[in-house]
Simulated assay, not measured.
Amino acid sequence: MVSGMATKKVTVTIPEELLDEIRADAAERGLSAYVTDALRVKRDRDRLVELVDWLQEEYGPVAEEESAAALAELDEIDAEHDRRRAQHGGVGEAA
């Protein structure tokens, strides 16, 4: 979390099994920092979806080959993230 940033306490309901997994992953950073990061990632992805939708409206759909190449690259990034996480025990390691 960014120091000096105003914060507000909220209550959310999360499935117990998911919360247990998140607490294990959050460990040293803490649950609030983990959830804050996750919400930022979700917000950023939502904005990217909006951008993609707009670009497709302006310039037409992405070609099948381009889409497949982008998805393959994302799979490689995910696999690298999983490898790094496994090497470092999954704690505090960014991809």
Results as ranks from 00 to 15, higher is better:
Ser67Ala: 15
Arg23Pro: 12
Glu66Asp: 15
Ala24Asn: 07
Val52Phe: 11
Ala63Asn: 06
Asp20His: 10
Ala27Ile: 05
Thr36Val: 12
Leu71Ala: 05
Glu17Phe: 06
Ala6Val: 11
Gly89Met: 02
Lys8Asn: 10
Ala72Met: 00
Ala24Tyr: 08
Gln56Lys: 08
Asp78Leu: 01
Glu28Ile: 14
Gly30Val: 08
Ser32Gly: 09
Asp37Met: 11
Asp25Tyr: 07
Asp37Arg: 14
Asp46His: 06
Val62Tyr: 05
Ala86Val: 04
Asp82Trp: 01
Glu21Ser: 11
Thr7His: 06
Asp46Ile: 08
Arg83Cys: 01
Ser32Asn: 14
Gln87Met: 11
Asp44Met: 12
Leu71Lys: 02
Glu58Asn: 07
Asp78Ala: 08
Glu28Asn: 15
Glu66Ser: 15
Thr13Gly: 05
Ala68Val: 05
Gln87Ala: 13
Ala26Pro: 09
Glu76His: 01
Asp37Glu: 13
Ala72Ile: 00
Val10His: 08
Val52Ser: 05
Ser3Arg: 07
Val10Asn: 07
Gly30His: 03
Ala38His: 02
Ala86Ser: 09
Lys8Cys: 10
Arg43Met: 08
Ile14Tyr: 03
Arg84His: 02
Glu21Met: 08
Leu31Ala: 01
Ala86Asn: 04
Lys42Arg: 15
Ala69Ser: 09
Arg84Trp: 02
Asp53Trp: 00
Thr11Tyr: 04
Ala38Tyr: 02
Ile22Pro: 07
Asp82Tyr: 04
Ile22Ser: 03
Leu74Thr: 03
Val10Leu: 09
Tyr34Leu: 05
Val62Glu: 11
Glu93Ile: 14
Glu58Gly: 05
Gly4Glu: 02
Lys8Glu: 13
Val49Leu: 10
Ile22Asn: 03
Glu58Cys: 11
Asp82Pro: 01
Trp54Asp: 13
